[in-house]
Nucleic acid binder design. Structure first.
Lengths: 129, 129
DNA sequence: CGGGATCCGCGAAGATACTG
DNA sequence: CAGTATCTTCGCGGATCCCG
């Protein structure tokens, strides 16, 4: 299984000092974690890791997302400094979304996770009905 | 920034064939992704990456979790084959939770993500009020 | 085309009480 | 100690209408 090749050179445990930091209820990392692991956040970020997308492209890509949730998710990710919004003042409007430097840093960690989920989905869901 | 060291040897994009697989609405990977990126799921998995924990230890560790959500989260992760439940038939009851092989595979990807969230939480949340 | 504003249902999640 | 059962609340997210 190729996931072990990945596992081989990554820390499999949280550094002790971090461990004290991420578990408390009020810690900021909880909030950030909630943003980036949100249902649609993951999908949007991964889609953008392939490059710039327009609003309507993202809407079609993340199948099932409502306009409201797309707007909300993009706004959150933009305020987090992960996504860059570029609006061109033309009629009809043209708006592009792309990842910031920080966004790419994040998707580098997110993409393997999504790939793992995809690879293991079959096995995992067998236990369910 | 040390996250780039990580990024250097990981795929930063989803393989094209996976990209077609993860975005459709009904695909199984969506379900799996929802389990492992759930609010409490991430915290429990990361806690268990440090080794075996008892119920009450997990309850204290994931500060703010209710008994209901702990039970629900553990049950889901157990059915997904990520967490192993070991009950010793003594009085009072003694139950240990640990990661399965597959669980360790997953936390190898999850731990860097949590670490990244912790490292970047300060910067990210500055844009908010 | 790319949103914003509003209304609202329903499932997720909290609180509390009880038990093997 | 390690849960289950029940009730209630809350806010996520869908639907709809509107606008620059």
């Amino acid at each position: 299984m190729e996931a072990n090749l990945l596992a081989a050179h990554l820390p499999t445990q949280l550094p002790p000092d971090l461990a004290d930091g991420v578990f408390p209820a009020g810690c900021p990392s909880r909030t950030v974690l909630d943003h980036i692991t949100s249902k649609w956040g993951v999908l949007i970020l991964v889609a953008l890791s392939e490059g710039e997308h327009r609003w309507s492209e993202l809407r079609r890509r993340a199948e099932g997302i409502s306009e409201k949730m797309l707007a909300q998710t993009l706004k959150t990710l933009e305020r987090d400094g992960l996504v860059l919004r570029t609006a061109r003042p033309v009629i009809p409007p043209h708006v592009d979304y792309s990842l910031t430097e920080r966004g790419y840093e994040l998707t580098a960690l997110l993409v393997p996770l999504v790939a793992w989920a995809y690879d293991n989905a079959g096995d995992i869901l067998n236990g369910w009905r």
